[in-house]
Design a protein around this nucleic acid. Structure first.
Length: 211
DNA sequence: TAGGCCATCTGGTCCT
DNA sequence: AGGACCAGATGGCCTA
């Protein structure tokens, strides 16, 4: 499952696996508009307006239809912005080995785990008396390597300063539905190695950060 | 073919 | 009144 970028619609990205649907009117026929900007006219029936009452009703329906079209456009735009933000989040997460694109929920969970792992790394660095050195803006973070589920299961958390994500959540009065998604497996004066679940299939990742 | 994921439409609610 | 946000419904595409 690796959709490819097809086209941009305003500030958004459209994916080939999700062809932009033509709007379907009440008769079920697709519209004739540009694929990147579906338009649906609702309540815009034309009438010979035999009576003022009928005309008023049609005008109200037409106004309602125009409002609905505008609202649809705003909603589309809003969701595109949301997707852009998710893409931005994906772009700063470590690349997966097979370059698989994370789904929305996977992206959020992966980010949660990754932030936790990095937070723990900083905490351990501080514990060892290091001053964290942040990479220059635009520089690449080290990419994690793939870990088998067996290796994940076998990995023992580091004894020194080890904290589970569940502990982390408790310290912050959170409850976590998914515990133990990260493991600090080793830490010494010079580096911290952690495993974390990517939430993409059965992928487990390993990363070592130099202190 | 079923299930997952997604984009879009839609009506409701809240806020300015 | 109009915009932002949200959740439900719908239907298309893809994969196992």
């Amino acid at each position: 499952m690796s959709p490819k970028v097809l086209c941009t619609s305003r500030d958004s990205v459209t994916l080939t696996r999700f062809s932009v649907r033509q709007p379907v009117n009440e008769a079920g026929h697709p519209g004739e508009h540009s694929p990147c900007k579906p338009l649906i006219v609702i309540g815009g029936e034309t009438s010979s307006s035999k009576t003022l009452k009928h005309s008023t009703r049609c005008n109200k329906a037409g106004q309602r239809g125009r409002r609905r079209v505008k609202a649809n456009d705003r909603e589309r735009h809003r969701m595109h912005n949301l997707n852009s933000a998710l893409d931005a989040l994906r772009s700063i997460l470590p690349a997966l080995p097979d370059d698989t694109k994370l789904t929305k929920i996977e992206t959020l969970r992966f980010a949660h785990n990754y932030i936790w792992a990095l937070t723990e790394t900083l905490r351990l660095a501080d514990q060892h008396g290091h001053t964290p050195e942040y990479p220059a803006v635009g520089s690449e973070l080290s990419s994690p390597t793939s870990v088998s589920s067996a290796e994940w299961d076998a990995a023992s958390p580091a004894k020194s300063g080890y904290v589970t994500s569940a502990d982390f959540d408790q310290r912050n009065c959170y409850t976590s539905a998914h515990e133990m998604n990260c493991k600090i497996v080793s830490s010494d004066q010079s580096s911290v190695t952690f495993y974390f679940k990517s939430f993409c299939g059965e992928n487990y990742l390993k990363n070592t950060v130099d202190l």
